[in-house]
């Protein structure tokens, strides 16, 4: 959560673009990462990320805290944008597409060939999971959301999220053997 988030959201609801800009800067990396890992393609991830924030900006006046934090609300929009993207485009991802280079990941972050291989395998393995399983793992272990925040974002109970997390990790373990 960004500092003074409630106030920023309040200002953004009134149409304050600077306030929304600060929210954008805080959440852009998280939403972009979430979408990139799911779609496995840099340009598509950029387009979907932009669409996510566009929808958020257009509808922020309607946002009310009814049990959903602002971040969960953003993740919900992102999930729906990815679903819409899959509906409109038949996406087939090959292992080459999920290489760190193809994903636009800075080579300086890849410390060794070993790390690079692991990332390629990891991305490939994540792609084999169900959508909600991907969502839960990314939100929990990449973005550090709590079980409650994940539950709000995927519209499930906390208990269901824990079960999905457990199953997803088990599948990943089997795929990465």
């Amino acid at each position: 959560m960004v500092e003074g988030e409630q106030n920023l959201v309040k200002q953004a609801k009134k149409g304050d673009s600077e306030a929304f800009g600060l929210l954008y800067e805080h959440y852009l990396p998280k939403i972009y990462r979430f979408i990139l890992i799911k779609v496995g393609h840099k340009e598509q991830a950029e387009d979907i990320t932009h669409l996510t924030f566009l929808r958020a900006w257009e509808n922020v006046s309607r946002y009310q805290y009814r049990g959903y934090s602002f971040s969960s609300w953003l993740y919900r929009i992102a999930r729906n944008a990815v679903i819409d993207h899959y509906r409109k485009n038949t996406v087939q991802i090959s292992i080459e597409d999920v290489s760190p280079e193809a994903l636009g990941i800075d080579n300086s972050l890849i410390e060794s060939i070993d790390t690079k291989i692991k990332w390629e395998e990891l991305f490939g393995a994540i792609q084999t999971l169900k959508d909600v399983e991907q969502d839960v793992l990314i939100m929990r272990f990449v973005e550090d959301l709590t079980h409650q925040e994940v539950a709000e974002a995927v519209d499930k109970t906390e208990g269901a999220v824990k079960v999905i997390q457990h199953r997803a990790l088990k599948k990943l373990k089997e795929n990465l053997k």
């Binding site: 852009l28 990139l36 890992i37 800075d106 990332w119 990314i138 990790l169 373990k173 990465l176």
Partner: peptide, 18 residues
Amino acid sequence: MKEEYIIKQLNSLKNIEP
């Protein structure tokens, strides 16, 4: 492969930035 190791690998994806 242990779950902790997989979680650690997932954590490392935090470094991805637009």
